[in-house]
């Protein structure tokens, strides 16, 4: 019975030890008996990284931080182990950064070319690169630092608000109240002005609307003219008009030349008329003086009377001729 008790108790204890040990190994992802590639990086500050923090290469978990220790010159040397199959990138550096906003950290191994262009990170890496065989490392700011900065900003805002509170005393409040009252009056006047101007604006807008309509009408007409012009152009009417105009101009030039010739001839005729008038004038003058036959005819009344009686006799002769033509005219064919 006692041996049975011993066996059962021993088995239970052994089982519990195995279960707990297996659980710890599983949870810590420990590799028992597997060789690891190890390297050391140095940092000024390791943030919240600690032994067990995963080492990540190109986003893939490839190892873990094994230990970290303070070193001379204000450095922290961090020893990391990598899976044997993993190769470090060219010119490697190590960045310690938060893996998420919930406080998880990771060590990211990457090439120098892939380092963020942050001045502080570059300065840390340049400083740590003088460590010989040790890889240079830098620590990115964590959420706590960012929130600390945000906290400082909030503090500044609070101090500004406090100053504002100090400056905003009773007098300022009174002045502010007066300003608000003035602003209220001003807004009333402004509202009234706006109402009045809105009426003017209504009429102006009516005029503008009419003007716009006229413009629209004119634009329509212009469009029609342009359309017509366009159609005329397309049918060749304009060419014809231009051609006709050219003909007209040519004829006009010809007419003007003819007119010039006529005017020259008129000038000559005028000269001849002038000499004719001068000659007529001398004739009229001689008639008025009673010189010559016509002068005697104009100035001697007996001649007029003789002529008049002659005309009367000629008129009676014509009348008799019409009444008795055979008395005066005899027509014979053979």
């Amino acid at each position: 019975m006692k041996r049975a008790n011993d066996f059962v108790v021993g088995l239970t204890i052994l089982g519990a030890i195995v279960a707990i040990a297996a659980g710890i190994v599983f949870m810590k992802q420990a590799d028992i008996g597997q060789r690891k590639t190890q390297f050391i990086a140095r940092f000024r500050d390791v943030g919240s990284a600690r032994p067990g923090t995963p080492v990540v290469i190109r986003g893939v978990r490839s190892g873990r931080i094994e230990s970290m220790a303070l070193a001379d010159g204000g450095w922290v040397e961090v020893r990391m182990s990598l899976d044997p199959a993993v190769r470090l990138p060219e010119n490697p550096v190590v960045l310690l950064n938060e893996a998420s906003v919930f406080g998880e950290w990771q060590a990211t191994v990457l090439g120098r070319d892939g380092v963020p262009r942050d001045a502080d990170v570059q300065r840390q890496l340049a400083d740590a690169a003088q460590g010989g065989t040790v890889l240079p490392g830098a620590t990115l700011p964590d959420i706590a630092k960012l929130t600390a900065v945000a906290g400082r900003i909030a503090g500044d805002v609070a101090s500004v608000a406090e100053r504002f509170e100090v400056a905003f005393d009773d007098r300022a409040a009174t002045e502010l109240r007066g300003s608000i009252r003035n602003f209220s009056d001003l807004s009333s006047v402004l509202a009234r002005t706006v109402r009045e101007q809105s009426r003017n604006l209504d009429s102006v807008s009516g005029d503008v609307r009419a003007g716009v309509q006229s413009l629209a009408h004119a634009a329509g007409q212009l469009e029609r003219v342009v359309t017509r012009f366009d159609s005329s152009t397309s049918r060749g009417e304009v060419d014809k008009v231009v051609s006709d105009a050219a003909d007209a101009a040519r004829q006009l030039r010809q007419a003007s030349r003819n007119l010039l010739t006529i005017s020259e001839q008129v000038g000559k005729s005028q000269e001849r008329l002038h000499s004719f008038i001068v000659g007529s004038d001398s004739i009229v003058t001689r008639i008025n003086r009673g010189q010559g036959s016509l002068g005697l005819l104009v100035n001697d009344s007996s001649l007029y009377r003789n002529t008049d009686s002659l005309l009367k006799e000629f008129r009676s002769f014509l009348a008799d001729l019409q009444r008795n033509p055979k008395r005066y005219i005899q027509v014979r064919i053979f």
Binding site: V9, T12, A16, A19, I20, G23
Partner: peptide
């Protein structure tokens, strides 16, 4: 004293 941790250790594994 000895067996309580054994029982609790197994309880941890079972609980998780």
């Amino acid at each position: 004293t000895v067996m309580f941790p054994v029982v609790v250790g197994i309880a941890m594994v079972v609980g998780i």
